[in-house]
Amino acid sequence: MANMKINKKDLVQLLGQWSQEFELFVPSRDGDNPRFLPWDGKDTGFLDWYRNTVIPPKSTMLPPVEEMFRFQKEKGKVQLEAPSADSKRRLLFGIRPCDANAMTLLDKNFEDGYEDPYYFNRRKNTLLVGLACTRPYDSCFCTSMGGSPSDASKVDIMLTDIGEQFLVEAVTDAGKDLIAKTGGLEEATEADAARAEESRKAAERKVTRKVDTSDITERLRASFEDKEFWEKTAAKCVSCGICTFLCPTCYCFFINDETNKQCGVRCKGWDSCAFSCYTRMPMENPRSEKWKRVRQKMAHKYEYYPMTYGVMACTGCGRCIRNCPVNWDITQVIKSVPAKARVESK
């Protein structure tokens, strides 16, 4: 399928078309708290400010609070009631390449062993329309994590800024199907393709934060017992949940029953390995000391995930750096993990 293009000013009609068939999510300011929310059907004002959202788009697949089922006890019998499933297909418009990549990383966890229905009901029901970055942040480091500001490989359709227009590229079959029946698109020319390539290169040049992750898995393994290093690394961490909650690849959740006498609801909610009370519900936290929790966070992303799934659980979106209240910078930590074991493993 040839690449298409659309005038930026016509984007609102495009979204209008798509919103007939899909529940359409777009970047929304939501006060001062950018996140993906259902499109208000009005405009594409987000194009003016949108660099990336603070709340990652994982919240559309793995919401901060999710009802699993309701229960009621009547005459000694327990009745369960499943939540109503989303039936309308969904479309996420404007997801950044790093966050689309993060979805594929979340998939690996939620399909491991069995398919998590809560996650995959949404995931499989959602089309991802990517928007290549033009203004990466100084905290972005996607190019160090195998990505790029214009990587189209994890979305269904990719849009690239070529000035007055977007180049529209259908990537997957689902993306091609949708483009085929979408009106208002023009076929892109070779000049458009050249402009898109220029746009991609320009964005990539703006990603100036670089970190070498080639041997981080081995370095982390070698440094597991290096308490001195980890204590120093963890010293300024306040053990809040910002970096994990805002991480597009972190998926830890707790399960909690909210009960009222004979009835109640079982909920899932975001949890964080940074918390001192993490895993307290089944038992005490085996990582009661802060340095162990910081080590866990690093090891899960750059050691255990590669060992289990062959890929690191980080896409370089930079949210953890931008939003940390103490400027605990994960790229500095990656750099500082010792190259060789300084402490022998027990």
């Binding site: 939501d30 006060g31 708290n33 709340i55 901060p64 306040v238 053990s239 809040c240 949940g241 910002i242 909650f245 909610g269 975001w270 964080s272 918390f275 209240p325 103490v326």
Partner: peptide, 12 residues
């Protein structure tokens, strides 16, 4: 409604 219970307010 926006609070995600990250507890940063408490932890700082």
């Amino acid at each position: 409604s926006r609070c995600i219970r990250c507890y940063a307010c408490r932890n700082v």
